[in-house]
Design a protein around this nucleic acid. Structure first.
Lengths: 195, 195
DNA sequence: AAATACGCTTGATGTAGGTCAATACAAGGT
DNA sequence: ACCTTGTATTGACCTACATCAAGCGTATTT
């Protein structure tokens, strides 16, 4: 038995609507619990992202590998976040991203086709989908602006104030990559900001 | 009389659905034509973005000004694109962005409240909204990845292949800012890639 | 038609942050 | 308990790109 309550609570909170017992049954029938151990991949570059996952427990990173072999983390994800490469998921194209568990991971996953099945019948779910897509658009806009206008130090301070728990959950080299910095630079930057 | 046909065509093409005559009347009643001359602002930093605009003719830039007074262009927009700071528009918070006409601009604009009025009644419109939000998410993901993983030159080549018409419509210094480069760097970069 | 502003290029110089390498320590696996 | 692997720090050096400044051609403005 897996924790569907986390998913139900999440949908109800984000959408501001209640789920009926039928809704819940429908969700339980279409979302499958899946466990990944640390280091396992939820998605590998080149594969189509067939599933979207809701994180019940654990953490993950979404990253690319460039031609020089360097990794770039685009997203760090925790409990109550969705896990997917949306481009690949929506368009069914091969993904350029890897998604890897950073801690043992429990997700509830569902396929593109199945999601369509309850977008219409469950009003709370489609309301949630709309809110999320708004939030994503906003977050992306902010992140893009930060990447363009802020210095490394400002971006780090931004992270501290917006996602303070990241510092506890993710090692510093992951944070550095997420900020677009080398681990050395982040280390130095922290030292200087403390004097 | 203004060109609503462009808007109708756009909605129908993106959504894959037809608009009824009633739909069209509803849209015409709620979207108002607005003209801006080159250099005029569609949105100013600090104001709430009350309107979303559909560009019928012309072009615009969305940019921020940092504390050193430097401008950073986040978006360049042309015909058949939507114009808004979605964060401000959705949440009704003061915007950090400016949106300025780069050429004489004709838009069809509507307020947040009015948009809600036809999200439900016009199926083609809500289908379009969903597709657009998907496209935005995808485009943002790509852009973020490009900003993190690519060099200046790669980003420029990316732009050439994805938006070749940008080079005709926007001056080079705007392109540079959009790519996160100084105008001098872009100029040099072009010279080198031609040998 | 003159005056002004704007956009592009080129050169000289500056700097934020990357790369490489060494060390130290903590954590997991067997 | 040992060995391996991952993570953080620090120093020396490097590079991509920014900044500053000057010159030039082409639009705009008056």
């Amino acid at each position: 038995m897996s924790n569907f309550e986390a998913l139900f609570d999440y949908i109800q909170e984000i959408s501001g609507k209640l789920l009926s017992e039928d809704d819940k049954r429908l969700l339980m029938a279409h979302f499958k619990p899946k466990k990944l151990r640390k280091r396992q991949y939820f998605l590998q570059e080149g594969d189509v992202c067939k599933y979207i996952g809701f994180i019940v427990k654990g953490s993950a990173r979404t990253f690319t590998v460039d031609e020089k072999g360097h990794e770039h983390i685009l997203k760090l994800s925790l409990e109550n976040w969705w896990l997917a490469d949306f481009e690949s998921f929506y368009l069914l194209t091969p993904s350029r991203f890897n998604i890897e568990a950073l801690e043992d991971l429990e997700v509830l996953q569902s396929s593109n086709a199945q999601i369509e099945d309850f977008l219409k019948p469950i009003p709370a779910f489609s309301a949630m989908a709309n809110v999320i897509s708004q939030n994503y658009t906003i977050a992306n806009q902010k992140r893009m602006q930060a990447a363009m206008s802020y210095t490394a130090e400002e971006r780090y301070e931004d992270l501290i104030s917006n996602y303070p728990h990241f510092l506890q959950r993710f090692p510093q080299n992951m944070i550095a990559s997420y900020l677009g910095l080398s681990p050395e630079t982040l280390s130095r930057l922290k030292k200087n900001s403390f004097k």
